[in-house]
């Protein structure tokens, strides 16, 4: 029997929460690269904090697990895309980052999970408010659509529209 190919060895493709594979027009800028006035570029976190104040237009930012997302609060209206990096399957800091952005800071534009994004994490990412995924899978679109309907019961309020079991139980009350 041939050894199966690990999902993590497939090239990452960008998929929306609706399961559409879309082109990725955004590029992560190296810290020494210059940017234009309104480019579809993603800035590193520290650079974004330093420069966004003086920039007009719409940019992206990359948040790594150790970065404190709340520092971005003053600049959120200048951001079109926020990429949250998941360097490894086991590092769950990005889930908190996403919920803080959506539920505490009120960020409403694109929130994208990048890095080691596998199908088994997508359910949790959807619930935490991500709406785009740079996912490695044989069938990335199916991975997202099946994750979305994996559980009919959820027990907590989170960043998505799913209502917790307690809300549904007492809906008529």
């Amino acid at each position: 029997m041939s050894t199966p190919k690990a999902n993590s060895t497939y090239d990452a493709q960008l998929v929306t929460n609706a399961g559409d594979v879309i082109p990725n027009g955004w590029r992560l800028l190296a810290d020494d690269e210059t940017h234009g006035v309104d480019g579809p570029v993603v800035l590193g976190f520290d650079r974004a904090l330093r420069e966004l104040d003086g920039l007009n237009g719409h940019y992206g930012v990359r948040i790594n697990p150790g970065d404190d997302v709340r520092l971005l609060e003053p600049f959120l209206d200048k951001l079109t895309v926020i990429e949250v990096a998941f360097p490894g399957f086991r590092d769950g800091r990005g889930y908190s980052t996403a919920r803080i952005l959506r539920e505490d800071l009120g960020y409403t534009r694109v929130l994208r999970a990048v890095g080691d994004v596998l199908r088994d994490q997508l359910f949790y990412m959807l619930r935490c408010g991500f709406d785009e995924f740079l996912v490695k899978d044989k069938d990335p679109a199916e991975a997202v659509t099946s994750a979305a309907k994996r559980f009919s019961t959820t027990y907590q309020g989170a960043a998505d529209s799913a209502r917790p079991a307690w809300a549904l139980r007492h809906a008529g009350v």
Partner: peptide, 13 residues
């Protein structure tokens, strides 16, 4: 028990 079941934020602590 219910709140912690499949908690989306706290499954990869």
């Amino acid at each position: 028990r219910q709140w912690s079941s499949n908690h989306p934020e706290f499954t990869f602590l």
